[in-house]
């Protein structure tokens, strides 16, 4: 078991990257294990999204290595499902819910081919898992923010990936969607998937995570809730006078 764990983990070593000409990440190192949900947190502008973008190869690295099973992560990007921030999407785009979820099968299908009946079934099942099966024919723009987020979660599920990156999935959503999201996290965890979640929430939901990464340009702390949520670490991340009930 231990052998498998060390083989399939995602190792990030000494990551340094800049975004639009200013240094966003400095010497960030951490490890993600399968079957674990990791919470990446830090103040606004700490570089949380930049970490995801650097992992996904969307921005160039200055230095550092990213390994999956001891080989460059870049070769394994097809195993990754990514849920971007809601603000990056134009919700007036003319597309139905069903077709958004099917986008999760585009890469697996390959060039010059139509989606197979199996791919469509996978998309339908994913939509069902997030409780949105009845909305397939609806335009994405007619849904509430929480419902739209669930559709994007379904798209990620449809990719049948091994690694899941969520960029602020809890922003602007309802309680029902929140519950669905934590359900999905628990299922994926049980399936041995690797999850990295960016979230601002320092409140009641910390119990859903196995590991915490506290970031502000550099990695300030990593580990369990107890290790990361210490007043000293939080002050170093968020500045003096920072106060939370959970700490």
């Amino acid at each position: 078991m231990i052998v498998i764990l060390t083989l399939t983990m995602l190792e990030v070593c000494h990551l340094t990257a800049s975004y639009r000409n200013h240094l966003a990440l400095q010497d960030v190192s951490f490890v993600l294990h399968p079957g674990q949900v990791t919470n990446l947190l830090g103040p606004n502008g700490a570089g949380k999204s930049t970490v995801l973008k650097a992992l996904l190869g969307l921005i160039p690295l200055h230095s550092g290595t990213i390994l999956w099973q001891k080989t460059p992560f870049r070769q394994h990007l097809r195993r990754v499902a990514y849920v971007p921030q809601r603000s990056t999407i134009d919700w007036d785009y003319p597309i139905t819910v069903e077709n958004v979820v099917r986008l999760g099968r585009v890469r697996q299908t390959g060039w010059f081919r139509d989606l197979s009946p199996r791919a469509k079934a996978i998309a339908r099942y994913a939509l069902d898992r997030v409780g949105m099966a009845d909305y397939g024919r609806h335009p994405i723009g007619e849904l509430s923010g929480g419902q739209q987020q669930r559709v994007f979660i379904a798209r990620a599920l449809a990719q049948e990936a091994d690694i899941f990156f969520f960029d602020e999935p809890f922003t602007g959503i309802d309680h029902q969607t929140e519950a669905v999201l934590f359900d999905v996290f628990a299922q994926l965890k049980a399936e041995g998937k690797t999850l990295l979640v960016i979230s601002h929430d320092l409140g009641n939901h910390l119990a859903h995570y196995d590991q915490f990464l506290l970031l502000n340009q550099t990695l300030i702390a990593a580990g369990s809730q107890k290790e990361v949520m210490c007043p000293d670490c939080l002050e170093r991340a968020y500045g003096k006078g920072f106060f939370i009930r959970a700490a």
Binding site: L56, L58, L77, V80, P84, T88, I95, V106, W111
Partner: peptide, 16 residues
């Protein structure tokens, strides 16, 4: 299907 993905969600398309 690729153009649909790219034009709807460029970041997601690039990540995939």
């Amino acid at each position: 299907k690729e153009l649909l993905f790219y034009s709807f969600d460029p970041l997601g398309a690039q990540a995939s």
